[in-house]
């Protein structure tokens, strides 16, 4: 039973053109996510996890069906509106961290706040708070190239969490990390989920991640197997 629904997916189908035909990545998916969930989309490669995550994140649009995120229908958002949704309400964590290479740790975490036009003093406070959550306050001046994989992913988590988004979408966040670092960042995310009531949705097939999930949604060949 979902207390407060923030994502509603009805009859979602996504096709990608391939040659003269198309490839169906998602087929009639129906789902709902509530506030504060720690959920994961599980399934093998090609099952449609990342595609679903991208559509929830308004980086892609459905071919058919309805995806309502925080009251907004993804299919009907223009580029300005979807950018605004991502900027204000969503956080992203990627498999390969996607940190901006020429920025320091501080600047990378500050970036989403710059887009929100927050004043410098407020930005500084929020960045330092986010870096404290992930234990990287000593590395503010380091560049991504000077950090380990685990540290980079922690910076990515801080960047995703710094604006305290309602939803964080994490695509294979542990795929490039060893077991110790994986557990470290998963514990961090679980704590943030509890403390800030942020909804975390993972796309993963990593057993370590799965063991932390409170809700597991299994996909196979673009269709929902269990939710």
């Amino acid at each position: 039973m979902i207390s407060e629904s923030i994502i509603t997916i009805k009859g979602l189908t996504k096709d990608f053109p391939v040659g003269s035909g198309y490839f169906r990545a998602l087929n009639e998916v129906n789902l709902e996510f509530g506030r504060g969930e720690f959920a994961g989309l599980i399934g093998p490669s090609g099952s449609g996890k990342t595609t679903l995550l991208n559509i929830i994140g308004s980086l892609d649009t459905p071919t058919k069906g309805e995806v309502i995120v925080l009251g907004k229908d993804i299919s009907h958002l223009n580029s300005q509106e979807s950018a605004s949704l991502r900027k204000e309400k969503l956080g992203f964590i990627f498999q390969s961290y996607n940190l901006l290479p020429v920025y320091t740790v501080y600047e990378n975490v500050e970036f989403p706040l710059l887009l929100l036009n927050l004043p410098e003093t407020e930005r500084k406070k929020m960045v330092m708070e986010a870096l404290e959550w992930v234990g990287l306050t000593q590395k503010v001046k380091s560049r991504p190239s000077m950090l380990s994989g685990g540290e980079c992913q922690r910076v990515a988590i801080a960047r995703a969490m710094v604006k305290k988004p309602i939803i964080v979408l994490a695509d294979e966040p542990t795929a490039n990390l060893d077991a110790e670092n994986s557990h470290h960042i998963l514990r961090t995310m679980a704590t943030l989920n509890q403390e800030l009531n942020t909804t975390f949705i993972f796309a993963t097939h990593d057993e370590k991640v799965i063991s932390y999930l409170k809700r597991r949604i299994t996909l196979a060949d673009g269709s929902l197997v269990s939710a």
């Binding site: 994140g57 980086l59 950018a83 992203f92 390969s96 996607n98 290479p101 989403p112 887009l115």
Partner: peptide
């Protein structure tokens, strides 16, 4: 391109 994609994911429009 990764950086461009990341900027868009973080809330920038393509125009920006």
């Amino acid at each position: 391109q990764k950086e461009i994609g990341t900027c868009i994911a973080l809330g920038m429009t393509k125009g920006q």
